[in-house]
């Protein structure tokens, strides 16, 4: 299982990920389209800042997914990658998912009357936000790989 991992001490708060997210979800998948199409796409992750700390807040595609449990029409589902996605034709814009998400990362697209959330870029191997991150604060990682990385970090710290 792969997931998006944000290493917060590397985040500059430059919002490249937010722009890349909008571009990827625009009609023509370019910056011009993202800003000029009639209903500009909503971003699906949010760079937040508290004091000096910056961090992209993003969908965790939770195991116990509260958004999916709250979805009254069965629009939200988990795809073969483990990613929680939306069936457009079933979303009625009741915003129950927004009410349920403890991370606040489901947004309301008032123009399309659809709930908008991270779909982890189904057309790409590497999600647009990850590809755009200049400091590699955002990475697509394998759970096992991350544990190994953490073990090595721990050993190096012990050596010092």
């Amino acid at each position: 299982m792969q997931f998006l991992y944000a290493q917060t001490d590397r985040c500059l708060g430059c919002r490249s990920c937010e722009i890349a997210c909008r571009i990827e979800h625009s009609e023509e998948k370019n910056l011009f389209s993202a800003v000029s199409q009639i209903h500009p796409p909503k971003k699906r992750l949010f760079v937040e800042q508290q004091g000096d700390r910056k961090e992209p807040v993003l969908c965790h595609h939770c195991d116990d997914s509260p958004c999916m449990a709250a979805c009254i029409t069965g629009s939200l589902y988990r795809d073969e990658r483990g990613v929680i996605r939306r069936r457009d034709e079933r979303c009625i814009g009741c915003w129950s998912c927004i009410m349920a998400c403890p991370f606040g990362v489901v947004a309301r697209d008032a123009n399309l009357h659809l709930a908008v959330k991270c779909d982890r870029c189904p057309d790409r191997e590497i999600p647009a936000c990850v590809a755009s991150c200049p400091t590699k604060a955002l990475r697509l990682v394998d759970a096992d790989m991350l544990s190994e990385e953490r073990r090595q970090e721990y050993m190096l710290r012990e050596e010092k």
Binding site: P66, W95, I98, A100, C101, P102, G104, A107, R108
Partner: peptide
């Protein structure tokens, strides 16, 4: 504006 409502319901 209902953005981030879930943070508070939780």
């Amino acid at each position: 504006d209902v953005s981030r409502a879930g943070v508070y319901t939780n």
